[in-house]
């Protein structure tokens, strides 16, 4: 595990390494949350020693978060930037503190019964904080002068919508009696985030700021194809996303609970739609990162 962190750090002596370690941390927290939910019976338990898997994924997640935080601090020092001044850095510190409070008592305490409530609460709050911080990190990559609260809202909404989709995915994959009700809540949240935060806020920023501030910089920079292909594709592909989210939300709303629990084929169909939505959110995130990078490169030329 430490070898993986060191390997990534040595391979990418830049923010890409920090981002890669965060990406692995995001996958690990999803795994830790899923196994935690299985232990409590909130989602269907899969065979095997779930407690061991939960503990192991929690420890790995803690190590990666610590690695990512240290990496971020080192990169800030290397670039001569002040440390722990930005909100991204402060959120990172909060995440590290929560992780310490999550992992250490769980390993040290012999009687964990009294600690379980707090452990559960911190575990569930950690996921949105981590997704917000990761989205904030992506926003930090946007060129200075073109940053705005709308771009930040656009990025954070996308991150939280991705988290809500993972939630829906887990509820469908390991369905129990209350899974459909929870999947519905997650889908309403995701549809709202995509429509208001991503579509309207992102669209408004595209119409009012992108064309006058970022587009000319990219077109005169070393990568004009980023606007001509990536941005042009993103602005249009994006229109599909709310339709898919609305369809998923309404389908979950009208879905019969017995059919949801009894028909594996129907659940597979819902999972396919949720996977498509998640794929599109991640694709749009990647496109956003490429556009931000081209904007930054353009201003440096």
């Amino acid at each position: 595990m430490l070898l993986v962190i060191s390997g990534v750090a040595m391979l990418y002596e830049s923010w890409i390494g920090h981002a890669l370690i965060v990406l692995i941390s995001l996958l690990l927290i999803i795994y830790a949350l899923a196994t935690g939910a299985m232990l409590k019976g909130r989602i269907k338990r899969k065979p095997g020693n779930i407690f061991r898997l939960h503990r192991r994924s929690g420890i790995y997640f803690g190590a990666f978060i610590l690695g990512s935080f240290t990496y971020g601090l080192l990169m800030s020092l290397q670039h001569g930037e002040p440390i722990l001044v930005s909100i991204h850095g402060k959120l990172g510190l909060i995440i590290v503190l929560i992780v310490i409070l999550q992992v250490i008592p769980s390993l040290v305490l012999k009687n964990r019964a009294s600690y379980r409530g707090l452990h559960k609460m911190m575990g569930y709050s950690l996921a949105p904080i981590l997704f917000i911080d990761a989205s904030w990190g992506l926003y930090n990559g946007v060129a200075t002068g073109t940053k705005s609260s709308l771009v930040l809202l656009h990025s954070i909404s996308g991150g939280l919508a991705a988290l809500a989709l993972v939630w829906i995915f887990l509820e469908i994959l390991y369905a129990t009696d209350k899974s459909l009700a929870r999947a519905r809540i997650a889908s309403y949240l995701a549809a709202f985030l995509v429509a208001a935060g991503c579509w309207i806020a992102g669209g408004y920023n595209y119409l009012t700021a992108y064309g006058s501030q970022v587009k000319p910089v990219i077109l005169t920079g070393p990568h004009p194809w980023v606007h001509e292909i990536v941005m042009e594709a993103k602005e249009h592909i994006f229109v599909f996303l709310p339709v898919i989210f609305f369809a998923l939300s309404i389908t979950l709303y009208i879905f019969d609970r017995d059919a949801f629990l009894g028909e594996a084929k129907s659940r597979r169909a819902l999972m396919m739609v949720a996977s498509l939505a998640l794929f599109m959110v991640l694709l749009i995130f990647l496109m956003g990162a490429i556009i931000s990078n081209a904007g930054k490169t353009g201003t440096e030329v």
Binding site: I237, F240, I244, A269, L270, M272, V273, M280
Partner: peptide, 21 residues
């Protein structure tokens, strides 16, 4: 047929993304 239409949604969306690109 939810299975048929979820596959169709995936195929149409991916095809349109590739077409636009």
């Amino acid at each position: 047929d939810a299975g048929l239409w979820s596959t169709a949604l995936m195929a149409v969306t991916l095809l349109m993304i590739l077409g636009i690109l």
